[in-house]
């Protein structure tokens, strides 16, 4: 698979947590173990307050971990600052920069990397086309709808061609129609870019619609593979 300027082997383990312990307000997430192969759309699911966002923050280097290791591709990034991990983060609220236009958002990461202006403009236009926000390029976040804001946040995160796109409940605050549109958009973005996605949600329907790999947090433990699927089936039966 060719992604950006790098050649990434097919089904290479893109992100891996090895026996990670994370201190959380009042409790500890212990021995978090999971691995996401490259190009996979992984959904990390669990109830509100179970520590999903904390795991994502730990992956991004925004929260210190008490023990264990985090690997991105074949390099350990446990102690690396966020900017050197090559991850793109989309927070729940988008966290857009109110002083910047949409075009500036889409070019932000490349400006930080001091890329030529024309490259930045081309990449911004490419992302705007992919995300359907061409007509918003000169607008600032104030006045954008929830869906538009999330599109901009996704574009900003994708700009520097990250190894992993980390989505923190990106659809939770959207109405039903926008939610459906955004689900389709995320699927399309994943197909067209081939980026590895780690998507966090508490919504089972959302998880089922998007996940190629399901990871579930229950009672402070991380379940993946058959365990996670069984748990999902149990939850469905409870409904």
């Amino acid at each position: 698979m060719i992604y950006g300027s790098r050649v990434i082997p097919e089904q290479f383990v893109m992100i891996q947590f090895r026996n990670v312990n994370i201190l959380l307000n009042g409790f500890t997430l212990e021995k978090v173990n999971f691995r996401v192969p490259s190009g996979t759309y992984a959904v990390l699911m669990g109830r509100t307050g179970c520590g999903k966002t904390t795991i994502l923050e730990a992956a991004c280097g925004l929260r210190p971990i008490a023990a264990g290791q985090v690997y991105l591709m074949d390099r350990e990034v446990t102690m690396l600052p966020p900017g050197r991990r090559n991850l793109g983060l989309v927070p729940q609220d988008g966290a857009l920069f109110s002083t910047m236009t949409v075009e500036e958002h889409l070019g932000f990461a490349l400006r930080v990397l001091k890329r030529p202006k024309q490259d930045i403009k081309n990449r911004a236009n490419e992302l705007a086309g992919l995300l359907g926000i061409d007509h918003l390029m000169h607008r600032r976040p104030l006045g954008l709808s929830g869906g538009e804001r999330q599109r901009v946040a996704i574009g900003r995160a994708l700009a520097a061609k990250p190894d992993v796109l980390c989505l923190d409940e990106p659809l939770s605050a959207l109405d039903e129609q926008t939610h459906t549109e955004m689900t389709q958009l995320l699927r399309r973005v994943h197909q067209e870019t081939g980026v590895t996605v780690l998507h966090i949600t508490h919504n089972r329907h959302e998880a089922r619609a998007l996940a190629k790999l399901l990871i579930v947090i229950k009672d402070g433990k991380v379940l993946e593979g058959d365990h996670a699927r069984l748990l999902m089936a149990d939850l469905d039966n409870e409904m």
Binding site: G61, P91, A95, F97, F108, A109, V112, A160
Partner: peptide
């Protein structure tokens, strides 16, 4: 100011100082 903005800037390659200059300072102007 939402601290998430700085965190996002840092994941996009900014150091803490760059996040302050490019994101926080314009926000707090």
């Amino acid at each position: 100011i939402n601290p998430r903005q700085e965190q996002v800037a840092m994941t996009l390659g900014c150091s803490r100082a760059q996040a302050f200059w490019w994101v926080v300072l314009p926000e707090v102007r």
